[in-house]
């Protein structure tokens, strides 16, 4: 089964296989990111701009801002969870409070909106 990913309601949340999985308004810690000058970006997710699948990762580019320095913008691709078994379609979300490493994509992937 193909993993179906999209953002809905003006980027308020990410749907994975027709299930609401990731919401805005959470704080994410980003490291090794050039989003802002902070060593670790304390990032408030305000809207999902793009979502995609880089098997097994479900990824997103998120609009928001660092609540420490105020820098706002859109992140590089962040892994928000995984669908390890496409047949079951079960989504395993990451813990957003943990440290995450946004990355620039270097290979093609299935991306929507």
């Amino acid at each position: 089964m193909t993993t179906d990913v999209h953002q809905l309601d003006d980027g308020a949340w990410i749907s994975v296989n027709d299930s609401r999985e990731v919401n805005v308004s959470d704080l994410w810690l980003l490291a090794r990111s050039d989003f802002c000058g902070c060593e670790t970006t304390d990032f408030l997710a305000e809207g999902f701009v793009k979502v995609g699948v880089d098997y097994p990762d479900i990824q997103a580019r998120i609009a928001g801002q660092c609540i420490a320095c105020g820098e706002s913008g859109v992140t590089d691709w962040l892994t928000v969870g995984r669908v390890v078994d496409p047949d079951s379609g079960e989504f395993y979300g990451v813990v957003h409070e943990s440290v995450h490493f946004p990355e620039k994509r270097t290979r093609l992937s299935h991306s929507r909106e």
């Binding site: 980027g11 308020a12 919401n23 805005v24 308004s25 408030l44 809207g47």
Partner: peptide, 10 residues
Amino acid sequence: GTEYCSLSIV
């Protein structure tokens, strides 16, 4: 607001 809305932060 967050009482009902998906997008709201507060």
